[in-house]
Computed example of a mutant assay.
Amino acid sequence: MQVLKNALRILQCVVISQPVGVSDVARKLDLPKSSVQRTLTSLEDEGWLTRDTAHGGLWVQTSRIWVLAHQGKEIGVRSLAQEPMHWLWERTNENIHLTQMQGDDVVVVDKLESTHSVRVFDPIGTRLPLHVSASGKALLAARSPEGLDAYLQASPAGFTAESLTEERALRAELQRVSLDGYAVNRGEWRSEISGIGVALRLDGDREAEFGLAISVPSHRLHEDQLAEYGELLLEAKHRIEQAMPLGPGAAG
């Protein structure tokens, strides 16, 4: 039983910390490095984990975890989003994310990857707080006043010098998002990752649950691109929402 518990702890550690090495997993979980290595290899053999050659062979999850956990509605949204996501990718050649709000986090649930040699590493399953993500901020801006108050009163954490954590600053930022229709992340979760995102309204009068984003290395996202990428995202958003059986705002 302890072997199984440790295997689940190791799998969870990789999902949260990826890309991550054997030594880091062993240190985080206070387990022998040799035991961690054997377990990682076994999880790789079963298709749960893999080694990412682009990051020196560090361990990352495979899409199998996401597929198992997200059957049903999410699969349908992925299907609707595929063509608009590809349209967006063709015009930017940057990582395109379909995201889902899960509690106070946003999770990457599908993606198209840039062909640039330097690109963002953000595998399916990547999870981060709403206020430091472009699509997450767009989803926050679409929340009910009560839901937004609850989030802001929980004292959002900072991750970089660019993170907005003070309530007044965050409210002002979300007001701008509401006016522009899209949000911008300027290295607020990781300094090397920036992006632009929108919220998708797919369930009538319900609060938005899914988002769409362009994820870009910070050095490649310039101020004069923001309006262009924002307009592209708004067009892709329109295409996805119109693909719903009755379009956005439909009852049901």
Score class of each variant (00 low, 15 high):
residue 119 R to Y: 01
residue 103 G to Q: 12
residue 168 R to D: 13
residue 83 E to I: 07
residue 172 A to N: 06
residue 17 S to D: 11
residue 52 D to C: 05
residue 197 G to N: 09
residue 237 K to S: 00
residue 73 K to F: 15
residue 69 A to K: 10
residue 93 N to V: 11
residue 35 S to V: 09
residue 208 A to K: 07
residue 88 L to T: 03
residue 68 L to Y: 12
residue 95 N to V: 13
residue 108 V to G: 03
residue 119 R to P: 03
residue 25 V to W: 04
residue 126 T to I: 00
residue 251 A to N: 06
residue 86 H to R: 14
residue 231 E to T: 04
residue 71 Q to F: 05
residue 204 G to N: 01
residue 136 G to W: 02
residue 7 A to E: 14
residue 145 P to I: 14
residue 222 H to D: 09
residue 224 D to P: 06
residue 80 L to E: 07
residue 74 E to W: 07
residue 204 G to F: 01
residue 50 T to G: 00
residue 85 M to V: 03
residue 146 E to M: 06
residue 65 I to T: 00
residue 10 I to W: 13
residue 3 V to D: 09
residue 88 L to D: 04
residue 116 H to C: 09
residue 218 S to K: 11
residue 172 A to Q: 14
residue 205 D to R: 14
residue 223 E to A: 15
residue 172 A to R: 10
residue 14 V to R: 01
residue 188 E to M: 15
residue 162 E to T: 09
residue 166 E to V: 12
residue 7 A to T: 15
residue 157 A to H: 11
residue 196 I to L: 14
residue 120 V to K: 01
residue 200 L to V: 07
residue 188 E to K: 05
residue 77 V to E: 07
residue 116 H to P: 03
residue 27 R to Y: 07
residue 168 R to H: 07
residue 242 Q to G: 04
residue 57 G to A: 09
residue 2 Q to N: 10
residue 213 A to C: 13
residue 50 T to E: 15
residue 88 L to N: 05
residue 125 G to L: 03
residue 62 T to R: 07
residue 121 F to M: 08
residue 206 R to K: 14
residue 217 P to H: 05
residue 91 R to S: 05
residue 111 K to A: 15
residue 146 E to A: 15
residue 171 R to K: 15
residue 227 A to W: 01
residue 113 E to A: 09
residue 180 D to A: 15
residue 26 A to V: 06
residue 124 I to W: 06
residue 49 L to M: 05
residue 45 D to L: 13
residue 175 Q to T: 12
residue 243 A to M: 11
residue 99 T to F: 08
residue 112 L to Q: 09
residue 75 I to Y: 11
residue 99 T to E: 08
residue 90 E to S: 04
residue 24 D to C: 13
residue 155 S to H: 02
residue 49 L to N: 06
residue 107 V to G: 01
residue 183 A to F: 02
residue 142 A to V: 02
residue 226 L to D: 06
residue 164 L to G: 00
residue 29 L to C: 06
residue 87 W to N: 10
residue 172 A to S: 08
residue 10 I to L: 04
residue 54 A to P: 02
residue 243 A to C: 00
residue 14 V to M: 03
residue 227 A to C: 02
residue 9 R to G: 01
residue 217 P to L: 10
residue 22 V to W: 05
residue 11 L to A: 03
residue 235 E to W: 05
residue 198 V to W: 11
residue 219 H to P: 02
residue 20 V to K: 03
residue 223 E to Y: 09
residue 182 Y to F: 15
residue 17 S to H: 14
residue 239 R to N: 06
residue 51 R to Y: 04
residue 121 F to V: 05
residue 64 R to Y: 11
residue 6 N to E: 15
residue 195 G to E: 11
residue 174 L to F: 11
residue 192 E to I: 04
residue 34 S to A: 11
residue 186 R to A: 14
residue 119 R to I: 02
residue 211 G to K: 08
residue 7 A to I: 14
residue 80 L to V: 06
residue 213 A to N: 06
residue 64 R to G: 02
residue 249 G to M: 00
residue 228 E to Q: 12
residue 189 W to N: 12
residue 177 V to K: 06
residue 187 G to A: 10
residue 140 L to A: 02
residue 91 R to G: 01
residue 162 E to D: 13
residue 215 S to D: 01
residue 24 D to W: 08
residue 94 E to K: 09
residue 192 E to Y: 07
residue 125 G to S: 03
